[in-house]
Amino acid sequence: MLIKRPDDIKTSDITDEKIYHQRRAFLQTGSRAALAVVAGAAFPGLMFPGDAAAQMAALKFKKNSGFSTDEEVNSLKDITRYNNFYEFGTDKEDPAKYAHTLKTDPWNVRVEGEVEKPADYQLEDLIKESQLEERIYRMRCVEAWSMVIPWVGIPLSTLIKRFKPGSKARYVEFTTLHDPAQMPGQKRGVLDWPYVEGLRMDEAMHPLTLLAVGLYGKVLPNQNGAPIRLVVPWKYGFKNIKSIVKIRFTETMPNTTWNLSGPREYGFYANVNPEVDHPRWSQGRERRIGEFFKRKTKMFNGYEEQVASLYSGMDLRRNY
């Protein structure tokens, strides 16, 4: 299975972490200097090169630069220690501390609903026929911070085509594992467990929509949603459901977890939109992790050209 280290891996296929770190060090120096000037104090701990999680098994993948941004990538350290994954606690650093209890091997994904081939798939069977790709995407959290993350995964559309959904399948609903023994955060009813997310079929079939199994060229760390998670880069981060155990095709719009928790604050679409504020805070700007100054948030998180047509004629203020 893919989680195991393939023997035939070519070094040229592996993303060179050194290059990431060199670029990172460059950014670090600049931002640190800016902050030192501005704040009058240097915080050497603000930024650092990602420490290589040596235990992460390498994946074999091709780069898909056509879909990737060339912006500076966030360090592996920041990507793996600053996570919203309430299944392991509501503090950003809880997932990194507690997600080790999650067992990702073996892992089954049930595919059901309006589909020709409902079945339980072992994760490796889902992935093995597909070529893994690296996609460097921006990730914009609804809390007004953002990162740039080098994911490794497969386009969701590849899998959906294999499942052969019927004509009634208008939406795709995803469900996270529900097991408080493995996910201690589920012992408290902070959200209505299990976590559920959904996409309209055309959103799910969009070439940007990814099912990620890796990060920085290696197997996804537990705190980032191992072993398989959704990545929809033009939507707020909470749409990117983690540790998926069920994919269900439905005729009606799925009830999604954050929408149930705060219907006025978190819509089904959750497209990144600087014009439509969260009722409690502005979405006009965001802090890129590792940077001091906030940057302007872009429509559809900068993927407007690729996805705006999905929503033509829709009132995005109402369909937030």
Partner: peptide, 14 residues
């Protein structure tokens, strides 16, 4: 001290 020893996390301002 946390600021000088990288204990403020990925988003120190927050």
């Amino acid at each position: 001290q946390a600021g000088f020893t990288d204990q403020l996390g990925a988003n120190p301002i927050e």
